[in-house]
Structures are given as C-alpha cells and as structure tokens.
Design a protein around this nucleic acid. Sequence first.
DNA 1: GACAGCTATATTGTCGACAACTGAGGCTGA
DNA 2: TCAGCCTCAGTTGTCGACAATATAGCTGTC
Lengths: 224, 224
Amino acid sequence: MAMSLGIEQPVTNADKTFFQLRKDIVEGLIASGSKLSETELSTRYEVSRAVIREAINRLASCHLVERRANVGARVVDLSPDGLIQLYQVREALEGMAARLAARNMQDEEIASLQGLIDSHFNKVKDGQSYYQEAGDVDFHYRIVLGSKNAHLISVLIDGLYHLVRMYRVQLGMAGPRVTRAYDEHRNIVHAIANRDEELAEILMRRHILYSKNNIEAKLRSPSP
Amino acid sequence: MAMSLGIEQPVTNADKTFFQLRKDIVEGLIASGSKLSETELSTRYEVSRAVIREAINRLASCHLVERRANVGARVVDLSPDGLIQLYQVREALEGMAARLAARNMQDEEIASLQGLIDSHFNKVKDGQSYYQEAGDVDFHYRIVLGSKNAHLISVLIDGLYHLVRMYRVQLGMAGPRVTRAYDEHRNIVHAIANRDEELAEILMRRHILYSKNNIEAKLRSPSP
DNA sequence: GACAGCTATATTGTCGACAACTGAGGCTGA
DNA sequence: TCAGCCTCAGTTGTCGACAATATAGCTGTC
C-alpha cells in the first residue's frame, strides 16, 4: 500500500491498472454489481491477465469488488444498508482520528488547516457548491493524516474513502448541506486548535452522523 | 476476503499458502523485520512464484508485511509505537462494534455469549491462565460478529486481530490481568443484554485501553 | 413435464520463462 | 582519497500457455 503520505504515485504497470480500474469503478464507468472478466479486462486495458489479477486483488482489499474462488469478481453493489454500515465505521475511525489530530498535529499543520477553512468561507458565501466535493474531501484528509496513525490513514484513505466517493458519485450528491457542514468543520478545527481531544472526537462523530442522515434521505427520494 | 462468518476455509493453493505464511509470521517462525524473497519462499513452500506473490500481496493488505515496488516485501517490525497505534484503532472499532452489538445481536446470541462468560468463570476461579488467549479472542470475536457490520468484521477479524496476536505471541503475553479482564467482559455483556449502546461502547473502549496499558507495561520491562 | 446426470465450454488458478529494474561493488578520473 | 559512473548479479514485474474448476445446456429417464 502506498501509505498515502501525499499523493500515491504509480510505478509499476499493475499500479496504473489498479488506479485506472478503481477510477472506472468509483465513477460508475464499470457498473456496480457487474462481473469483472479477467480476459476481457486484459484485452480492454491492454495488459496481461497477471496484472489484471493483481489489480482485482487489490480492489478486493478495498472492498470495491468481491471475489469468489474459481468463480470470479464482481463490483460491489450499492445499497442503503451498505451505506449505513460504511458511515458507522467512518464515525468510529474519524472520531478517533480527530481525537488523535488534536493530540498530534503540529501547530503549523493546524494553522494550515485553519487557512483551508477560511478559504472555504469565501466559496460558501458565494454559494459555490464546489465545496462539497473537493473541499470536504481535503478537510477530512488533513485530519486523518494529522492523526499520525498509520492504520487509521491506511484504512480510511486507501480503503473506505473510495467507497464513500463511489456512493457520492453514483447517487449524485451535491446537497444543501454546504453551509451547515462548513460550520461543523469550523468547530472541529477550533477544538483541535484548543487541543481538546474529547470535544474534537465528539464533534467529528456528530458531523459524520449528520452527513449520513443527509445522504440517507437523498437515497430514499431519488432526486437527480 | 473470506468475510469470516465462522471459520475461513482454504480452497485454492494460494489460500493455503497465505494461511501458512500468515501463521509462520504471526508466530515468529519468520522473524519480524526479515525480507521475504519470492524465489526462496516458492522453493520452501513448494509452489510457484505466482501463488507466493498473491499470498504476499494479501499479507500486505493485512499490514503484516510491507511491500515496495521493484524491491520486495519485509515482515513488519514490532515497536512500542506500532502497538499503541494498533490499540488506538482497536479502541475506536471495537467500541463501535460493542455499540452495534447492543443494537443488533439476537437474544439467543446474547444468551450464548453470556454462557461463554459463565464458562470462563470456572476457569478463572481455578486460576487457569488458559483464559487470556483463547477465551479473550473468542469473546471479542463474538461481539465483532454481533455488530453485523461487514466492514467492521473484515477490518478487525481479517486484519488487525492477526497483528494483535503477533504482538501477543512474540512479546509473550499471559499476564495477571485475567480476573480483572473477566469482570470487564462481564460488564460489557451486561450492557449489551440491557441494549445499552452507549454504555457498551464506553466499557469496551475502557477495556481495550486497560489492555493496552497492560501490554505496554510488559513491553517496557521484558519479563519472560 | 421435471429432474438427475453428463458433456462442453468458458473462466479462473497455476506454472515456468523472459524482461525490467535495483543495489552493490569495482573502476575511472580528477 | 573520494565522487561519480558503470557493470553485473540477483530480484521483482510481466507474459503466454497449460491445468483445474464451475456454469450452462443437453440428454435420457421416470
């Protein structure tokens, strides 16, 4: 695993194929629930079956595909229950991440995070929904990295976040939750700056809980 | 991944090799920090390099080995900091597992769990330190499975628990924490039986925190 | 018509060989 | 002496072919 300190750089052919496949799955180019044929993919991506196999195995580690011996691999299918379970794990892990960030982040990192939030303020004020996607992701990334916990970083950034993005993209999230989420982010940073571990964890957990409820509501009423 | 509902059954050759390699690493037969040569392992385990490669990749997903492109894989090395980080994640995940177990476990499952605890009582009373290893593992397994959350189950049972066992085995844990841990288990089951999610989570988190402190102390004073 | 068993086909699992890369050691030239 | 380059052995990455397995469809019997 790339350990994700910064941007993951593909070096081998299997890496590139893995990233490409992951992208195509997350963005729905390969339909959720569809079967992944090794031979077909090897011709489509113009690599040998061995590298396709390795890529699929890695995707299985991220829980983006499910593999059965002697049968094959299928892209996971998205379900309300799956989403809920995903957010339950996020709540636990990111709560802990916020706690550890309050303990372990350097002062400069916190200042930089504060700067990020401030820059968001302008965009929120202008009503740019740009926020939800890039801004939200960036915010959560920084806190997870700030935890300085390798397991946390790996499970979330290399694993769950791609699934989260898959749900967001394929269910078409954009949402009017922008300004409210902005305030929540602001409060979390404040708690971290005060080195208040307990509060940072609680606020982060509530933030994710709200976010789950929001997406869940969208999931019931197909709006797009 | 095997999804771990019950016992994971090897079907393919890569499965068997993966299990064997994992066992040998966890139990220290392959030294922590040592390099894993694909060619050497393929002769030692009498399989082709391809299945060794797949096994190593899976081990990397469990964080039991670290792989670098074009260089090779090394068994992770155990460190005090690594142990602490591991238990931080356990605290977050198993806390959530206990909460969800209080919500989702069937009445019969809870009764069975209660039975397990009761059976432990006799052994603890007799001073059998058998408890710590098998009993403790079994207890935590049941609660994680009781959460009915696939991600939680996979990350913990297919992943972190093997690392936990690796620390325990290679640092020689047995400890006088038996009776105290027993009481903590008892209280957790009580909270779950009462469907008290909040309390179940808090108790589990404290239980793991205590456990971490215990191992940490042992790690400072090499007793065995 | 339904069902069990068999056959055929397509897919996955496994293998050995070749290509590409890394790291160590020695060599050259200042 | 030392920095930098180069060579070379050994390792990992990639490939195409073969073996083993599962699924679909057919056949024959009840």
